[in-house]
Design a protein around this nucleic acid. Structure first.
Lengths: 214, 214
DNA sequence: TCAGTGCATATTGTTGAACAAAGCACGGCG
DNA sequence: CGCCGTGCTTTGTTCAACAATATGCACTGA
């Protein structure tokens, strides 16, 4: 077996993708022995992975009963959007229009547009998240960026429960473009305002979709 | 050996206190076998603990070389205060003056005053941090509170490097009281303003102390 | 003397097996 | 029909082992 640095991390990435991608549905129980065999790692290593992903909010650990894929609730959504508003809006409002991260924002917008043309809604979703991660990168805070990455992972898990990813992401692609435009023109205040309205609307849509699921 | 749920968490708490309390100085190398023996847990469990504390920013993990107590730098301080400003100020500005967490804020202020009278600067430091944690609790966001708890742990680690904890905390006890007063009187805007100035000044003091250490 | 080289040693990364303890399923019994 | 005990399964934790990597030290050659 190859002994590369961070087999646990690598396995965590793999499992993270399986969870966010929907291969492992929310509420699903992850058996240690079975999953360890499937992933080709030992039980001890898998437990380290479990701890990582539990800390990230993707798994739920019930003592002496096992680990389960987290089941996002409406409270989860509300909390996540609260955090997003609190972090993203000021980040944009105080941004320096020539910050490096603006390039990441532009790249994300272009990626999303390309994927929309190709009708690849999964990539659209990724690009959308990358756009928001880039907004947080405007703060130059490593800790904030790490935290936000977790928030994004949780949000994507919640999105996985919803159908019609098109309706979920398509309306925001061009709005991201407009926000980017405003920022590059030095109109941070208007950009932040637009983002705030955007987040409010997005939260409403997601909550409504959730409510339909019961 | 007792098999209670969360031996790893319990051990993590113990180790966290040792680190924040200064028993294990920044830069110190933590040998797996030795520390496992000292703490009375197995190497596997200790590795889980390492992962927890690494994620919290208290430890630094260098692949194939070992785990070390994190060494806070000026960049760490700057980043932490950036995060604090971004989170605490809006939290206070948008707070509901009759929120439950106001009680925690009051309790923290009183605890700090009592400890000041007893000249117990360590408790003053704790109470001070509890005050700020209470401010974040005003947001009602579980995720934000968890994140902030980490930030606080890191900051306390950095404080451990500095001497004269009196100068570090004493000037802020009464300011916390004033902020609390303003909030309960419904003057959130002025409270937030005061907190912002407070954070700026505190950052300057800490950075200056750091610079003296060289 | 001193820089470079190579080996012995210690430490980390990962695995597999073992065992106690807790939960769970199932069937017997009142 | 409900209650309970028994046995199976899974988790929580430890231990021992091995490969891979880093560290320290003696040795070499100028």
């Amino acid at each position: 077996m190859i002994a590369e640095p961070g087999l646990a991390e690598e396995t965590a990435s793999r499992l993270r993708n399986d969870i966010i991608g929907g291969a492992l549905p929310p509420g699903f129980k992850l058996s240690e022995t079975r999953l360890a065999a499937d992933l080709g790692v030992s039980r001890n290593t898998l437990r380290e992975v479990f701890r990582l992903l539990t800390r990230e909010g993707l798994l739920r650990h019930e003592p002496n009963r096992g680990v389960f894929v987290a089941v996002p609730s409406m409270a989860t959504i509300v909390d996540i959007y609260r955090v997003r508003r609190l972090i993203e809006v000021p980040a944009l409002a105080h941004a320096w229009p020539r910050h490096d991260a603006v390039g990441q924002m532009r790249a994300a917008v272009e990626k999303a547009r390309g994927a929309r043309d190709a009708q690849d809604w999964r990539v659209v979703g990724s690009a959308n998240m990358e756009f928001h991660a880039a907004i947080v990168a405007l703060t130059d805070s490593a800790r904030l960026q790490a935290f936000f990455a977790q928030i994004i992972a949780e949000l994507r898990l919640a999105f996985g429960l919803l159908d019609s990813p098109e309706r979920l992401h398509e309306p925001y692609i061009d709005r991201n473009g407009e926000i980017l435009s405003l920022l590059t023109q030095g109109q941070q205040a208007r950009a932040a305002e637009m983002l705030a309205a955007y987040l409010d609307e997005s939260e409403r849509v997601v909550l409504a979709a959730f409510a339909r699921l019961g």
